[in-house]
Design a protein around this nucleic acid. Structure first.
Lengths: 120, 120
DNA sequence: ATAACATATGAATTATTGTTCATATGTTAT
DNA sequence: ATAACATATGAACAATAATTCATATGTTAT
């Protein structure tokens, strides 16, 4: 069923040619799909989700987040970096302290839709 | 800064007590947050995202998905299982063939919001 | 019952990722 | 300059996960 290049060779295809063409027209570029997957990977960790939920209520410094979640400063800092790189959180420095906050509204929508889905 | 239990002990907390209480009231149960992370992990892989995009256009059998994405039947089948377990796709059997399709509308919303976010 | 096809699955391998530990960087006060 | 505090980061380790390969299951036709 699979040739030497790993490409499928089913005897009878069920998709009509028009569907194939439509898929090829609508499917975003590989690079975009890769970026999209990278974004969702960020949501795919409960520590990061908790951080986002904390930031729903208020901007907060690294240490206070760590205290609230009962985790080390290092672990939280590493995860905040991931959230920062994905532009899901932003930060401002005030003396020794760095305050993190949510970067935009998509976070709420995405988490909200996820919640709705698992609630079913 | 960290005690022997790994709990943070910052000298000066910046969060006010009322914020802490609000976070503790609003934060969902650990189990729910875990399930939520599990759901987003599913979106965190470009192969699965491609499968979902394909299914936007039409229900489709495993072999045709594999052909469209240039991947093996086995790899697609494994990923479809993950999508099925997360209730993101459903399926119906017709003879030897199994047709997969999107299970609900959250998929579109979540992917759409993700797209909006990375487009910024 | 057997052959042929479509799909599913277990085990192995490779790659990725979260946390910890130790330490570095940056900031403020003395 | 030094000490103290807050945060960031690199390396290592342990845990997860994606794909491949081989094979099993399920369905249809002969």
């Amino acid at each position: 069923m699979t040739d030497q290049n790993g490409v499928e060779r089913c005897e009878y295809s069920h998709v009509h040619e028009e569907i194939v063409e439509k898929v090829e027209r609508t499917m975003p570029e590989d690079e975009i799909l890769y970026d999209l997957a990278e974004l969702f990977k960020i949501f795919g960790d409960s520590t990061r989700i908790k951080i986002l939920y904390v930031l729903f209520e208020s901007e907060m410094c690294v240490c206070d987040i760590a205290k609230l979640l009962g985790m080390t400063q290092s672990a939280i800092s590493h995860q905040l970096r991931a959230l920062k790189q994905s532009k899901l959180v932003k930060y401002r420095r005030e003396g020794k302290t760095v305050f993190y906050s949510l970067a935009d509204g998509h976070v709420r929508t995405i988490l909200g839709q996820g919640m709705e889905h698992i609630a079913e």
